[in-house]
Computed example of a mutant assay.
Amino acid sequence: MEETIAGPAAAHVPKQQGDSIAEAAVRYVEERHWDVFPGTWLDVADGTQHCSCGEPACPAPGAHPAHDDWAARATGSATVVRGLWSEQPTASILLPAGRTFDVIDVPETAGFLALARMKRMEVAFGPVILTPDRRMQFFVLPGAAAKVPDLLQSLGWAASSLDLVTLGEGTYVAAPPTRYGARGPVQWACRPTPENRWLPDAEELVPTLAYACGRDR
């Protein structure tokens, strides 16, 4: 069962109930046309969960790439995805940024403040992930990583003064129902729906996100 924070109704990716990790990965490919790739997974030994990478102090147990060439392994083929997860059904679902989306990553408190303001102002936004590390990740059109520093400067903010990070090419995010070991699952704060299929440009969200991060300092 995929865990979800309150968000728009009638989600299609993934279903509220019943989807395995593999089924969720296929839905991201088929419904959103997102590339995906399998990451590490959680093994259990002596009643304790461990990352399959074997690193005792793994910072993201069960939720990071298993191979250095992960970008080349990412695929948009549902057939390939089914084959990959048949090899390791509990592998995490990772999505490469910089292809069909970039991500703006902010603290959870700033993210919820920004969402509330966007709804009041009727600003359209895309899917939003809530991580177990209490970060929120807003999906926007590709190219945001190059735009955001100048956007912040035009708004009077120094990028170094805000806890706002943009993820583009060469980075990735973990998608629900991936789990970060004992820290818990990745969840949707706002799930992918037919209504938010078209992602916003960074310019549409950065003013509100910057304001919320400024309030959160």
Rank of each mutant, 00 (worst) to 15 (best):
M121Y: 11
A25F: 01
G181K: 01
L167V: 08
V44P: 14
G39E: 06
F139I: 08
L162Q: 00
H50M: 12
R197S: 14
W70V: 05
F125V: 03
R99K: 10
I5A: 09
G214V: 08
E30V: 11
Q88V: 08
L84N: 07
D105I: 13
F37H: 05
W157F: 06
L152G: 08
E2K: 15
F112G: 15
F37G: 07
E2G: 11
L164H: 06
P207T: 05
S77I: 01
A6Y: 12
A212I: 03
Q88C: 08
A25R: 03
E2P: 12
V165M: 10
T79V: 14
P107R: 06
W41I: 06
W70Y: 00
T171C: 14
F37K: 02
L115D: 07
V128N: 00
L130T: 10
W198M: 15
Q153I: 13
G7T: 01
S52P: 02
S52D: 00
G111C: 04
H67P: 13
V29D: 01
K119C: 12
E30C: 12
T131V: 04
E30G: 09
G54Y: 02
G111P: 03
L113R: 15
G47L: 03
R215K: 09
T166D: 05
L209H: 03
R120V: 15
A124C: 05
F125C: 07
G170P: 01
S160H: 06
P59D: 10
T79I: 15
D216R: 08
V13A: 15
V173C: 15
E55P: 04
P96F: 02
R217I: 13
V36S: 15
P59H: 08
I93H: 11
V148T: 01
A97H: 03
R135C: 08
R183Q: 14
A91P: 05
A210N: 02
G170H: 00
E169I: 15
G76Y: 04
H67F: 12
A144P: 03
V206D: 05
D102E: 05
Y211Q: 12
V173S: 13
H64S: 08
Q137M: 06
E203H: 13
T166I: 06
S20H: 01
R99E: 07
R215S: 12
V106Q: 04
S77L: 01
A22C: 12
G170V: 03
V106E: 00
Y180F: 14
R183G: 11
A74M: 05
L130Q: 08
L162N: 03
R32K: 09
E87K: 14
G83H: 13
Q16M: 08
W157M: 01
C190S: 14
W157L: 01
P89H: 07
A146R: 10
R134I: 05
F112K: 10
P61I: 04
L205I: 10
I129D: 09
L205M: 07
A6E: 11
R191K: 04
V165A: 11
E31F: 15
L199D: 05
L155N: 00
M136C: 13
G76D: 04
A6Q: 11
G111E: 05
V26S: 01
R135I: 10
E87P: 07
S161V: 13
A110F: 03
Q16E: 04
Q187L: 10
S52E: 00
G126R: 07
N196M: 10
G47S: 01
G214I: 06
S86N: 11
